[in-house]
Design a protein around this nucleic acid. Structure first.
Length: 259
DNA sequence: ATGGTAGAGCATCTA
């Protein structure tokens, strides 16, 4: 039973030891990372190889950076958008094929301030992700699009919707663009498994003790095409990985798929 | 009290 996981590690350099322990504990078969904050030359491919993973990385150094790891090898690795337009200025998406699944690791722009240039970049980036999927997938393909979407799909995915009035991650334009991705035939796997679950989060601000006070958002998502959604046996957000010394501010999402 | 922390890198920018 293949195990898929995605995790915004918020600097792989700082998190390497914790990440390796987590890989050993969780034993995933396919992994997407976001916010490695590494240049490609600094990506620790050999360390992952010694743990049994093939890997590929798309980074720029100080910020962003995505990676894909797979136990059974990676094929057709591509970085950035494949929609044939100008390259994205930031390292936020990469695609590979493993175990017959097209895997897309995404780090959606944060958006910063509603109405800012970066917010507009976020909206157009989400649109481009749809075009990218047109370019790299075909109807009926097994596809997983996973990572930090920086959008909470609904109010139940936010600890206090009122606290985010006028803020990014919850605005209608952002949710509409996420919805447009779902309308392409992708399923939010966690929500499919737990339709009524409220206040289950994947990210907590480092400040104010937000993690321990339960003030978070569910913004790390695993979207699966129908062939994937039909195979989901189990899904959790691994809150344990947010505990202890020097955690990422994000928890991983783990999904087990039937063979 | 418009706060707070973390990471990259050394002044701020990003989240």
């Amino acid at each position: 039973m293949p195990r898929f996981a995605t995790w915004n590690v918020n600097s792989l350099k700082v998190r390497q030891e914790r990440v390796e322990q987590w890989l050993t504990d969780i034993q995933p078969d396919i992994v997407c990372f976001q916010e490695t904050k590494l240049a490609d030359a600094a990506f620790p491919q050999l360390a992952f190889e010694s743990l049994g993973f093939s890997s590929a990385h798309h980074g720029e150094g100080r910020w962003n950076g995505v990676a894909i790891l797979a136990r059974n090898g990676l094929a057709d690795v591509s970085v950035g958008f494949a929609d044939g337009v100008e390259p994205d200025s930031e390292a936020r998406v990469m695609t590979a094929r493993c175990d017959g699944i097209t895997i897309v690791s995404v780090y959606v722009p944060n958006g910063r301030v509603v109405g800012s240039d970066h917010y507009e970049y976020k909206l157009s980036w989400l649109d481009r992700l749809g075009s990218h999927l047109d370019a790299v997938t075909a109807p009926g393909d097994a596809v997983i699009v996973a990572g930090d979407f920086n959008v909470a799909p609904a109010d139940v995915d936010v600890y206090d919707p009122a606290a985010f009035e006028g803020e990014t991650h919850v605005t209608k334009p952002e949710r509409e663009r996420l919805g447009a991705l779902l309308d392409r035939g992708l399923t939010d796997v966690f929500r499919q498994q737990y339709p009524g679950a409220e206040r289950v989060f994947s990210w907590w601000d480092y400040r104010r003790g937000d993690f321990h006070e339960g003030r978070g958002m569910r913004i790390d998502l695993v979207l699966g095409s129908q062939p994937i959604a039909d195979r989901v046996e189990w899904c959790i957000i691994d809150r344990n990985a947010r505990k202890g010394k020097m955690p990422s501010d994000h928890a991983p999402v783990i999904v087990d798929l039937a063979d």
